[in-house]
């Protein structure tokens, strides 16, 4: 049993590429990286459903596409509902094609949450992935419900006055067979979680943090570093939940024992410049609360 565990922590990443090089994503885009690994894990019998977001742009301009699998572009609010229809149809047709909705945080926590909640509640056989760059990237970085407290965006020039929406607990309330969080800085973790998700029938959900150089305002070379700092500081927690059983991922367990300083994570990003000490304290408080709750839940003490 122990061996299997070790093996699944270090999966071999499939060689096949389903995204061509030189997409029109910004330099240092981590969403591109996430998608690359999602598709490696999913393989060729996959359809991607993409609402309006940066991913609609990075495919390139018709008649070109940078993807090696079919991508179905749909209206902003509709990804989960379109995927519902597609999943039902494939089932009806006797096909095992993976239906993956790949949506931004805006398309998930804001305009798309109604369709998502419906699809999850109906037990739709699909995987919904929210890549979270914590703002509306496509339209030039306006705040979303997923933008963290204090972050500057073009519609919160003085820093966002509201907390980041706790999407994962909303999703958890749907009691899914599988949901997980991950981060672009850990591609092997993404591959493993996508493979696992796709091996399960029913609704699956993945929430992946996607640092974004122009939006978060850091140097394009630091995308991995920023992602790792998010996890190591505890600002972003990685775990899996199978129905009501929560398992913390190793990176987050480590961060709980010996966290990197939160300030380091904030300092590296221009969007947090000029944060007041009160706001930092508030950010820390909600981060600690989140970790505390997760830890309790993982230990089965809540």
């Amino acid at each position: 049993m122990k061996n299997i565990r070790v093996l699944t922590l270090m999966p071999t990443v499939p060689d096949t590429e389903y995204i061509h090089k030189c997409t029109s994503a910004c330099a240092g885009c981590s969403s591109d990286l996430i998608l690359r690994h999602v598709l490696k894990a999913a393989g060729p019998d996959t359809v991607l459903v993409v609402p309006a977001c940066c991913t609609s742009v990075l495919q390139g301009v018709y008649p070109n596409t940078s993807f090696g699998i079919p991508v179905y572009n749909v209206a902003f609010a509709s990804a989960a509902a379109v995927a519902s229809g597609m999943a039902a149809a494939f089932e009806e047709l006797g096909k095992n094609t993976n239906v993956i909705a790949y949506a931004g945080d805006g398309g998930t926590v804001d305009i798309g949450i109604q369709a998502l909640s419906g699809a999850l509640e109906r037990g739709t056989n699909f995987l919904y992935i929210c890549y979270d760059n914590e703002a509306y990237g496509n339209t030039g970085m306006q705040r979303s419900g997923s933008t963290p407290l204090g972050a500057r965006t073009t519609t919160t020039p003085g820093g966002k006055p509201h907390q980041k929406k706790d999407l994962d607990r909303i999703i958890a309330a749907h009691h899914l067979p599988y949901m997980a969080t991950s981060c672009s800085a850990y591609p092997q973790d993404i591959v493993r979680k996508v493979e696992k998700a796709l091996s399960i029938k029913g609704p699956k959900f993945l929430h992946i943090l996607a640092p974004c150089p122009p939006g978060w305002r850091y140097d394009t070379a630091k995308t991995i570093e920023v992602g790792k700092l998010a996890v190591r500081s505890g600002m972003w927690a990685m775990y899996e939940r199978e129905y009501d059983t929560l398992t913390l991922s190793g990176q987050t367990k480590a961060a709980m024992m010996k966290p990197a300083p939160l300030e380091e994570y904030l300092k590296i990003q221009g969007r947090f410049s000029g944060l007041k000490p009160d706001t930092i304290a508030e950010i820390r408080q909600s981060m600690e609360r989140n970790l505390r709750l997760l830890k309790k839940e993982a230990e089965g003490t809540c």
Partner: peptide, 25 residues
């Protein structure tokens, strides 16, 4: 988008006394 951004900016900087609601759709 620039219309929304500019209004958010006016309200944040105080040059416009209004309530700007950053709705979700």
């Amino acid at each position: 988008t620039e219309i929304v951004e500019q209004i958010a900016n006016f309200v944040t900087k105080g040059s416009m006394k209004a309530s700007y609601i950053p709705v979700e759709s």
